[in-house]
Design a protein around this nucleic acid. Structure first.
Lengths: 330, 330
DNA sequence: CTGAAAGCGCTAACAG
DNA sequence: CTGTTAGCGCTTTCAG
């Protein structure tokens, strides 16, 4: 591997000059720049990134923590971040937190040890105070989680509005007895989607029976169980707002097993619009969560703030309705 | 950030000694080791990885190239690699190749520029000669693609056997007129799965009509179109072997649109067992592709070869049948 | 078993 | 616009 020294010798300039042309910025004559570039070319020179990092105190790498590397939710998030970083020639180092406090923390420390220049976090367990402290050590960018003091660094979805719109859509289709199946209530999004449901119901002057609200968890099984609970309670709800698609799938499956036809006897609306929503039968009506786009926004913010020291702003997306086949007009 | 210097001063030893205790290996008195560790603890010392890399010529990072960061196939692959690397405290740097030659190459170069210690590749477009050349620059580990000269560094699935088993399963269920929808034939797995189909047919003494073989592409749309082609040809096949699940989904959808009942009028078997296979209706019978496990194997091999200089061996997995609801006994 | 010293390859003042 | 000169923080001979 040729070093900067060899390049400088071949080009007949100092190492500093070579460094300058590499980093674009500085004032270098076009002539010398050409000479240096030719030399680099000829030697097949590639900068040693460890040396660059050590000298510049910057690694050109951004760390990202997600709960899981697989699954329809985190995949698009990583893809969005990678696309943006890659274009900017920044490396993406990934670690997963498995949705557990200890492991999320470990993932973060692991990445900080590597001196990443910024940290894009999609975490659920780390509390706000800790996030703030973290941000003192390395610029932190949050996706799908907001912390007031860090709001400029946040990209989030208006979940409350999503819950509202979903419920409202059901109401507009003539439903009045609407059940709500929530995710784990310590998760911001679960909480907010539920609030949106409440607002829509209240605004429409519909009662909210606590029996209609099933606190469950964001998984297929969570939806499945919730449906069975609902059945046991013998409520004649005509529609269910499931706080995410996986739960909606569980509900669909359970309904099928109980010979409840969707959407004829029961309407179901989900949330997230994961790509599978299009594969199930009937196809799931749901709220779109623009994961890829949001991830891109967050990554762009990270680049701007970290490498260009530009001020950045909070980015908020709105969930939109995706009409498919699981909601029927009453 | 405290440096090794400060630690050494506090502990009253040389930097070399601190370095030794950090890297475990060397002979250090228990007493001094304790002193050093205490000092590290007290200072909250964390080694600067860039400095380590520069001095040791090793980055403790492994690069991974996948086609996409999203999707049911690559997700588990990344998850498997990350789990293994993380446990070994090695960083995972990810880049996507988007299944295009130029971009795959760019992804690889991008990672090599960072001096990753090894490269785990899940690529399709880079040819064998290039892979070999690459391996001179950095240890390369291949998943789902075999190159004879690199076979010890390879983890792959016996796709031919999978195609054989899938087809055989259909035959055992009384099917004789079996169509095969392949993926892009320049992909090794598409090629091999197709060969497996042929072997099973021949072995059973069944004719293979070229009209029954549709060369398509590994996507939903590919399956959808293939089904329509099959319809146009007015063949009365009773079963279809789809070379991957996404295509099988497309076939299911197309069949539904044409009022062909699965499995009553048509049996379908897929390949990969992506997690969605369990969500569609009817649930897809398919061949299991142990992506997560294979990724783990590959990562373990990478660790062994790169960091422990241990000899490694090729790892081959066998696809197994997952019986669900899309194949019926004739 | 431990210390001294020489870099690893690059960047970043500071001069000129 | 370009060169000189110090390091960045760590590993690794080589002595002792």
């Amino acid at each position: 591997m040729p070093t900067i020294k060899e390049v400088s010798e071949l080009a007949g300039v100092s190492q500093a000059t070579v460094s300058r042309v590499m980093n674009g910025s500085d004032r270098v004559t076009d002539a010398t720049r050409k000479r240096v570039e030719a030399a680099m070319q000829r030697l097949g020179y590639r900068p040693n990134s460890a040396a660059q990092s050590l000298a510049s105190n910057r690694t050109n790498a951004i760390g990202m923590v997600v709960s899981e590397l697989q699954g329809p939710f985190y995949g698009p998030m990583m893809a969005g971040v990678e696309d943006v970083l890659r274009r900017a020639r920044k490396h993406l180092i990934i670690a997963s937190g498995h949705g557990e406090e200890e492991r999320e923390r470990d993932a973060i420390e692991f990445l900080i040890n590597r001196q990443v220049d910024g940290l894009i976090l999609l975490v659920e367990r780390i509390d706000d105070a800790e996030l703030l402290r973290l941000n003192e050590r390395v610029p932190v960018f949050l996706i799908n989680h907001h912390v007031t003091q860090l709001h400029q660094r946040t990209t989030w979805l208006n979940n409350e509005l999503g819950g509202y719109r979903a419920t409202r859509y059901l109401i507009e289709h003539g439903h009045q007895r609407i059940a709500c199946v929530t995710g784990q209530m310590w998760k911001q999004d679960a909480q907010e989607r539920y609030q949106g449901y409440r607002r829509a119901m209240q605004e429409a002057g519909l009662p909210i029976d606590d029996d209609w609200v099933i606190h469950s968890f964001f998984e297929f099984e969570g939806g499945y169980q919730a449906f069975e609970t609902l059945q046991q309670r013998k409520l004649d709800c005509t529609a269910i707002f499931a706080s995410n698609d996986e739960m909606a799938f569980g509900i669909l499956e359970a309904a099928d097993n109980h010979n409840v036809a969707v959407p004829d006897q029961l309407s179901v609306i989900g949330f997230d619009n994961i790509y599978t929503a299009n594969y199930v039968k009937p196809k799931l009506t749901t709220m779109n969560f623009p994961m890829y786009e949001m991830a891109r926004s967050s990554a762009e913010n990270a680049l701007a703030a970290v490498y260009q020291k530009r001020p950045i702003q909070e980015v908020v997306y709105e969930p939109t309705l995706v009409e498919r086949q699981t909601v029927r007009q009453l």
